[in-house]
Amino acid sequence: MLTLSIKPALSLAYFAYFGVLGIFVPYFGLFLDGRGYDSAQIGLLLALVTATRIVGPALWGTLADRTANPLRIMRIGALVAILAWFSSFIDAGYWPLLLGFALFSFFWTAILPQLEVCTFHALNDDAGAYSKIRTFGSVGYIILVMLGGALYQHWGSEFMPATATLFLVLLFISLLNLPAVPTLTSTTQRKMSFRELFSSKVLWLFMGAALLLQMSFAPYYGFFTLYSRDLGYSGTVTGLFIGVAVLAEIVAFYYAGRILGRYRFRTLLAWCYGLTALRWLIVAFYAHIPLVLGLSMLLHAGSFAIAHSCAMQFIQQFFPKAQRGRGQAFYAGIIYGGGGAIGAYVSGISWQNGSGASQTYVLAALAAGFAMVLALSLPRQMPRAA
């Protein structure tokens, strides 16, 4: 089998991973709606599936640290995720579908935290180089979002299972081609106990702000395509709206290294979270105006790309090198798993089959606003645990 050099292999892995999400995240709500489920059922399924991301990353991170073989963990996760994904091809009812997607999500969580650790390790913690490689993930995402919009227009929501399967297989192939990296654990650096790490007020302020931000994204991830459809936009136009957001994300990721080097961590986070609150208010009250909705999508550059780059830099600098795998797992589990599950459940209740769309995005804006307040409480300098 052909072995790629480290940067092309990492770029391909990000491209394939986020390509899968480009199908799953925007169109999953439409897929479930097409199977006949209401918004409360969709919200509950999203919440339960997302909740598997609370436990999964911690388990996989612990295994990766103990085995010192994150590549094997990622490959096993990708393989079982493919097998679990096949449940989406069969319409056997609500609970079998939930079980299949929960299994998929649990093993899916084995991949990204370890991929992030391997990437930073291979790049010697160069945030600028990381951002450029991470850009390939955004490219994969936007290609599948745009393709998904066109496929939905012609084939309906059942296009999702087969299309995502192709990129799941590509991801597995890219992980098989990923070169081995040196052992990620350190024998010379003292490992701090998690009691020491988690006694830090700074860590809890940061995690609280990030949790609220992720909660605020739940109606966008779970219901935006349904919202757009209800407002009269076609599947292709909806794909274009999401594409604008991801294009802004790509540009922001490319320049993230320079931006992080120029501005204070606390200032950047506060701006990102504040712009996110503004974005959800625009979506709540002005989404019926195509130009305004399209312009609001540009705020994704700060809402996601710069905010995510700040989070990765925080973890790389706060956690000792030997414990960054668990740090990434903790972040993925608590923030993406916990925040996503809470947000999805609340959004499912608040959405009320579309009649509560505006109030749901207002709640999202409030969550992002509180996240900005917590970000402003962080110290002026980037914190370090050791």
Rank of each mutant, 00 (worst) to 15 (best):
L59H: 03
L175F: 14
P320I: 12
T67C: 12
Q313H: 02
V55P: 01
S174G: 13
L226R: 13
V237Y: 15
A341P: 04
A102V: 03
A307E: 00
G56S: 14
F136P: 07
S39Q: 10
I259S: 00
P182A: 09
I306T: 04
S296C: 08
P290R: 10
A245S: 12
V283M: 11
L275G: 02
A367G: 05
V117D: 10
S138H: 04
F304T: 00
R264C: 01
N69K: 13
L45E: 06
L144S: 11
A364W: 03
K201G: 01
I315H: 00
Y37K: 04
V237G: 13
A368Y: 01
A364D: 07
L97E: 07
L2H: 12
Y17D: 10
T187D: 13
L197I: 04
E158A: 02
G137C: 08
A150H: 14
V202C: 05
R266T: 05
A110E: 06
W155Q: 04
L213Q: 05
A180Y: 04
F28P: 02
A284M: 06
A365H: 10
G243H: 14
R258S: 09
V145P: 13
A92G: 07
A322N: 12
Q41R: 11
L166N: 09
P320K: 07
I173Y: 15
A364I: 04
T62H: 01
I111A: 12
D38R: 03
L170P: 05
F265Y: 11
F314T: 05
A210H: 00
C272T: 00
I133M: 14
Y37S: 00
P383D: 01
Q189L: 12
F120P: 09
T225Y: 10
G43N: 07
A218Y: 09
W60C: 00
R75G: 13
L197P: 01
A301E: 01
M382A: 06
L376W: 08
A344R: 07
R53F: 01
I282H: 11
I173R: 14
V346N: 02
K201S: 05
M160Y: 10
S200P: 04
G36A: 14
L10V: 07
G274D: 01
I282S: 07
A110S: 09
L226M: 09
A248Y: 13
I6F: 09
L45M: 07
M382N: 07
R326K: 14
T188F: 13
Y233N: 11
A218D: 05
T135N: 08
V373G: 00
I349Q: 15
D125M: 09
K132D: 08
F172V: 08
A386K: 01
